[in-house]
Write a protein that binds this DNA or RNA. Structure first.
Lengths: 248, 248
DNA sequence: CGTTAATTTGATCATCTTCAACATGAGTGG
DNA sequence: CCACTCATGTTGAAGATGATCAAATTAACG
């Protein structure tokens, strides 16, 4: 679980990054990877609660999560906030800004370090590397897929289905990075989960209890243990797919 | 309202297209436009109920709507269907396929004609025209924006807000093509609207009646007349923005 | 016109929200 | 090390919004 990075030693190299297989430059050969690295920037790690960008900020770059996690929050001037998604290591975020500046705020849920991918630089490199350009389209298309699956989830599924789909999505995302798919610790609060799933925090709390009572999970605060993934998946009508398109 | 096209005379030319300002090649100069046109294809118009592509189809191209309209439907193998969006003249669709084949089906709601934009061709041209490449990113980012606004709508807003936001979105989209923003005819059924908004068809019907009774609209089957747009917008807390990011 | 599909309206029911109280727990200063 | 506090999470009871079931009405189309 310990992902501490020895900062002084970190020299930005996608080639050495354990998350490279999940990230934008996946599939590039060593030479192209080097060109790609040249435009990628580092950032000082964010502390819990700090943001990578805020709604209203001008758009400059996409970000990749190296470690930690964030919530992406849409905050309309008038109304209440809506969490659009959570970003975990190996995942890209920041797409909300490409259009005409950021409409969301990206808030770190814990100590989080990022790579910065300036879109101008990236797309210039990409114009010389067709496979990278295509990958960039795919990454954006993936974002669209995720959001669309989420629409299905919100429009059609019950509260219990939503929570189960959420847990299964997290499970897959942990698994894709080599962590346990059954035992993990949530980095977000009940309130955040509820907001994301379009529910009240109390409902989420009750659902955790219910799933625990039903023997599907063991819930201890933010520590989650899923007892039988196929079982859980089936029980909720495999809306596992919802939002799990995540990191392909 | 009559958008009949004299078919024999149609020669594909984005330069002559009245929708060019809304479409992908907007902002290109005449020369670049010509290069763009070269890769754009035509399709025989779809009849009501026919589809441009179906879930499971291999991805080849994005589509632009010349006339008519479509619903984009996500159909998971098991569960029920979910309408992800409606596409109207000047708008692009087909992004659901870029990742790894189409996950949605695009069904014409009326007689509908399309332009076909093969992504390989487009991205090749785009790699030589940076502004086009950037525009393509923006179009995809716009799709993300729309979906995310829709997430907010589904997660946080009441049934009445959702319907009002939907109508305001349609209103803007009609207006952007030069049609009345207050008087228009829906091309989709109550059932489709309900599905899209995550509601029951009966609820949508009741809401139309209620808004009519309240004097905000005149509803006559699929003919809608909005009496006071700012009024409607304000009454629902300007979630007008939701989904109205549509055609920028 | 007759037949079927779409829409409207009514009545009842379920899920989820809201309000409220209570429990737990991490962090802080004595 | 212990009390205190603020944030987070849990649980209960009542209420509301929207779903579902059922029937009536209207519109669409051959």
């Amino acid at each position: 679980m310990n992902e501490v990075i020895d900062l002084p030693r970190v020299r930005l190299s996608c080639r050495d990054c354990t998350l490279a297989e999940l990230c934008l430059p996946r599939g590039l050969d060593a030479q192209d990877m080097e060109r790609f690295e040249a435009v990628v920037g580092q950032r000082a790690p964010l502390k819990r609660g700090e943001s990578a960008y805020r709604a209203g900020d001008q758009f400059n770059a996409l970000f990749a999560v190296k470690s930690g996690s964030l919530k992406i929050v849409m905050s309309p001037p008038d109304g209440e906030e809506q969490i659009i998604g959570f970003s975990m290591p190996g995942e890209l975020f920041g797409f909300d800004g490409i259009q005409e500046g950021h409409t969301c705020t990206a808030v770190a849920l814990e100590r989080t370090s990022l790579c910065e991918l300036p879109l101008d630089g990236i797309s210039e490199v990409a114009s010389q590397i067709p496979s990278l350009n295509r990958e960039l389209y795919k990454v954006m298309a993936n974002e669209i897929s995720i959001d669309q699956s989420m629409l299905l989830l919100l429009a059609r599924r019950s509260a219990e289905d939503r929570l189960a789909a959420f847990l299964l999505s997290l499970s897959r995302r942990f698994a894709s990075r080599g962590f346990s798919e059954t035992d993990f610790t949530l980095s977000m609060s009940r309130h955040d989960i509820a907001n994301y799933l379009g529910l009240a925090a109390e409902t989420v709390s009750r659902l955790f209890s219910r799933l625990d009572d039903a023997g599907l999970l063991t819930v201890n605060g933010r520590k989650i243990q899923i007892h039988d993934i196929p079982d859980l998946r089936q029980r909720v009508g495999d809306c596992a797919k919802a939002e799990s398109t995540a990191v392909n």
